[in-house]
Each structure stands twice: as structure tokens, then as C-alpha cells.
Amino acid sequence: MLEGKFDQASLLKKIIDSIRDSVKLCNFNCSQNDGITVQAIDDSRVLLIALKMDPGCFQEFRCDRDMVLGLDLESLGKILKQGNNEDYLTLIAEDNPDSLLIVFEDKKKDRISEFSLKLMDIDSDVLTIDDMDNDCSITMPSADFSKIARDFKTMSESLQIIVTKESVKFKAEGQIGSGSVIFKPHTDLDNPDESIKIDMNQPVNLTFGAKYLNDIVKASTLSSTITIKLTDKAPALFEFKLPSGYLRYYLAPKFED
């Protein structure tokens, strides 16, 4: 049996809102030690989502036997809209389930809402992601990165990320012209999440599809910082930390014709 209770329904709502525009169907793998993990790749096979909700994400978590819940995220999203952000949210599944029970509890009123979501058999291949040695790692406020991704998409289909030891530069070139934003590393002692950290082994210059970056920054609601790991001619990793665990996006770069 699975029973996972979130202190705030908003956490799962934000997670599903962050991934459902990229992937529609995905398997939620549940286990006592790892909590709930998801790996899903978008139809174009350009963007991969790796989600890890450790048991620490939950106020209470038990999973007696490993199980896989095949979920349609659009349907799950419809049910999650029914609860309030501050409600307790509990996911319940029997062993070998054909449905997932979703329970919202209002903390102040004696109101309990229950929904049952039909599960699906989802055939998906799993990709093995080896730990990569990255050329660069950037940690910055997620709101800043989100603004760049959204603003530059109006100018260009692509966003270039150029990292040197001294700075990270975001650059877009479009029909109307071009633009760039440069950040230099700095440490904000009063607000550590406002700091910008750049670790560089080798400079990189990579180009990514603006459309995918705009899907990725939907997760900015989950964490005030984002870590971007870049390697020449390889997929980039965009990571948002959860209270316990992470939401990661792997995005294949564009190449020169």
C-alpha cells in the first residue's frame, strides 16, 4: 500500500504544472526508500524530466511494496485544481492498483474531498543518465533565469548561453535585432538565494531552443534558485531543488548547420 501525505497540496500542484506541458503520460515509481520518482521524455525526445520526491517531501510516507502508477498528467491536473493550496493532500493506492485515491483535507474546516483517478499502463523506455563531468555549473536566482527565457523568446527561437570564468552571458539573435544579458558572480550574504555562483572548468558556448527553456522555467515556482550544468556539445542539466529531492530537466542543445 502507498500512502503519501503532503503538508501543502500546492507542492504537488506546482510540480505537475511544471511538467505537464512537456509530458502527458508518465509512470510514478513509488518505493519506501526513494519516495516517488518519475522519468519522462517529451515526444520530440529533446527534453527529459527527472523528478525525485524523497520521503522528506511528505509529512507522512509509507510504501509497503514498490509500485508503478501510470498517470495522465492532464487528468491529474484537473483533480489537483479541486483542492486548495494549503490543504493536506494524500495519495493513496492499494497494492496492484487500478486507480489512485487523492484526498484533500482543509486544515481549518472539517472538509474532506476525495477523488479517484484511473491509472494507465504506460510503456516508456528509461534512459540511463550517467553522472557527467560538467564544464560549467551556474547557480542563480530562478526568477532571473525565468525572466531571460521568457523575454528572449519574444525575440528569437534560440537562446545562447556563454560561460567564462568572469561571467555568464545570455544572448538572443532574431529578425528584429539581438540582445544579451550578462551576469557576474557575486555573493549576497543577506539573501544567499540572490547570489550568483559560477564554477568553470572550461568555457562553454551552447545554444538551446527557447520553447523548451520556457517549459523549464515553469518550475521556478518550486525553488528560488536554479542550477544549470553545461558541457560542450552535450545536454544541459537544469535543476530545481525540492524541500527534499529535485526536479531536473535535461535539454539537448542545438547544433550549427
Binding site: G209, P235, A252, E256
Partner: peptide, 14 residues
Amino acid sequence: SGTQGRLDGFFKVS
């Protein structure tokens, strides 16, 4: 501008 790469070339399917 440029050709969009795919993840399959980088990650192994298991």
C-alpha cells in the same frame, strides 16, 4: 538557427 539535437544520442535506453 541551428539544428535541434536529440537526447537519444547521449543517453542509453535501458
